[in-house]
Simulated assay, not measured.
Amino acid sequence: MRFTPSPEQRQFAASLHDLLSGADTPGAVRAWAEGRPEPGLKLWRDLADLGVTALRVPEECDGLGAGLTDLVIAFEVLGYHAVPGPLAESVAVAPALLGDGERLRALAAGRLLATVALPPHVPYALDADVAGLVLLVENGAVYRGEPETEPVRSVDAARRLFRVAGTGGALGATDGSAFEAGVLAVAAELLGAGQRLLDEAAAYARQRHQYGRPIGSYQALKHLLADVVTRLELARPLVHGAAVTATARDVSAAKAAAGEAAYLAARAALQVHGAIGYTAEHHLGLWLTRVRALTGAWGGGAYHRARVLAGA
């Protein structure tokens, strides 16, 4: 199974990268963590203008009707820039759960952010205090959710998690495809975050000098970063392949591999940066905590490895 991005997909990824490179994304993440979502919401409106929020919305509801391959292309870039907010929930999952055309149009246009809880593997709704629509999926049915007032603390301060209770009757039924789309989106996001950590570590290794030499010239660091490159390059085709097959086994393999590769990238980046990487002021921490949170989000490594074995 091979998936090679088309010229259009490459151009879309480049446009998205250019947009986010020109924005103060770290500033938006810090503001989001402090309970000031306005900069992040401005970023979401810019993403909507590029069509990101419309990717999985059907064309008849003013969306793009894009496939999972387009989704992973976009989410790699979103993870690379650590965009705040309920990305997987709003862009990948909610469109598969909603039959309401008006809400789907609002999602596509970026006027509405949605978040989702799917117990047991997604027990909390991310950023339910910012999202205009909170959904709860239980026993194959979709309900409107009501979040608790106080969030559950996450290792990533920009990820505000809320317990959710269902309200009223079911809005509809769902199969497992919404969950698989969410897992795949998070896997692609991890892949992008891991690549960003690798790039940050490589850049720092070139500019930081010890004993009159850049630290990147030392063999130990070369081997360390080479291991990260290898793991990311092995994970990438699994993520892209899962976007083609969309089977539970392949999606789980992608999530497990991407999580392990990104976690290795985080450890390596922290080793390369040394003590400065621990400081709250350094932006490296935004990706370190994001990777730590996402490796356990939408099912941890043990769960996904077990699904791979069960499907072998």
Rank of each mutant, 00 (worst) to 15 (best):
P7Y: 15
P7I: 15
E8H: 13
E8R: 15
Q9T: 09
Q11A: 15
Q11M: 14
Q11L: 15
F12N: 13
F12H: 06
L16C: 06
L16G: 06
L16P: 03
G22Q: 13
G22K: 08
A23H: 03
A23W: 04
A23D: 02
D24H: 00
T25I: 13
T25Y: 11
P26V: 11
G27D: 05
A28R: 01
A28N: 08
V29W: 12
R30P: 03
R30K: 04
W32F: 06
W32N: 04
A33P: 11
A33L: 12
A33K: 13
E34G: 15
E34H: 11
E34F: 12
G35S: 06
R36N: 15
R36E: 13
E38K: 03
E38C: 00
P39G: 01
G40W: 03
G40S: 07
L41Y: 02
L41T: 05
K42Q: 10
W44L: 12
R45F: 04
R45Y: 05
R45K: 09
D46G: 14
D46S: 10
A48Y: 01
D49I: 11
G51Y: 00
V52D: 07
V52Y: 09
A54S: 06
L55G: 04
L55H: 01
L55Q: 02
R56M: 15
V57P: 05
P58K: 04
P58W: 09
P58A: 03
E59N: 01
C61I: 08
D62W: 13
G63H: 05
A66Q: 12
L68E: 10
L71R: 11
I73M: 13
A74D: 15
F75R: 11
F75V: 04
E76I: 11
E76M: 10
V77W: 04
V77D: 02
V77K: 00
V77S: 03
G79A: 10
G79H: 06
Y80R: 13
H81K: 01
V83G: 03
V83R: 07
P84K: 04
G85N: 12
P86L: 08
L87E: 00
L87C: 04
A88R: 08
A88V: 03
E89D: 09
S90I: 00
V91I: 07
A92W: 00
V93Q: 02
V93I: 07
V93F: 03
V93A: 01
A94V: 07
A94P: 05
P95V: 06
G99C: 15
G99D: 11
G99F: 13
G99S: 14
D100N: 15
D100W: 15
G101W: 14
G101C: 14
E102T: 14
E102F: 09
R103Y: 13
R103Q: 07
L104F: 09
R105L: 05
R105G: 10
L107H: 08
A109K: 11
A109T: 14
G110M: 04
G110A: 07
G110K: 06
G110I: 06
